[in-house]
Every structure is written in C-alpha cells, then in structure tokens.
Amino acid sequence: MAKTIRIRAKAKGDTTTVKALITHPMETGQRKNKKTGKKIPAHFIQEVVCKHNGATVMTAQWGPAISKNPYLSFQFTGGKAGDTIELSWVDNKGQSDSASVKVR
C-alpha cells in the first residue's frame, strides 16, 4: 500500500497535540453499487494505536460511522520536541499501515 498516513505532532508547553489524516475508503457495508445493485462490502478501520516513545497513549476503536479519509486529533502531556510519535491502524480486512514522526 502506498503511504496512507499523514501525521503531525506539536509540543506547546506541557501538552503535545497530535493530528493525523489517514487515507482510507471507510465503506460502511450499507452503500449499494448503483449499477449492479449489490452492496459494497464493508471496509473500515477498526483500530488506531498511537504511541509516544514506544508507550501507548491512545487507542481508538472505530466503527464504519467514521468519515472517509479519517481525521484524528488528540492531546497528551509529557511529550517534548524530538520525541517519536508512532501511529498505526488496522482495518476489518486485516490491512494495516503505520507511520512515525518527531514531535516539533
């Protein structure tokens, strides 16, 4: 798979804000193909894990109601510039991707 994650992390004072954009179709399994009338099978991200210097700070469990090409943002304390943030996702078809970035 091509690169699917765009991630940025910025430290301000004690708080580090992580923002990520993932490229993913997020099919709900309820949409129909207009030509064939068949349902498009569900294909969505189930779990996103975000680690700071190897320790998990946030785990998101997602259903198909998260928008296509999901955006995610959260904050945590204790990060500083130069730290490594790693984000990975797994979808319901077993596909996955991960990316890491340095905190600015």
């Binding site: 785990t59 998101a60 469990q61 928008s67 995610l72 959260f74």
Partner: peptide
C-alpha cells in the same frame, strides 16, 4: 445512525480528555 456507536477512544494515563474526528 443504524449503528449508533461511531468510535471509542481509549485514553492512556497521559492523554488529555480531548479527541477530535469526523463522523458520518
């Protein structure tokens, strides 16, 4: 929504009570 639960965010000890995303 047909299935109301959109997402569940498990926050670690150091995570702040803040999440932002986009929903259908």
């Amino acid at each position: 929504n047909t299935s109301p639960l959109a997402g569940n965010f498990l926050l670690g000890e150091r995570a702040k009570g803040y999440v932002s995303t986009r929903l259908k």
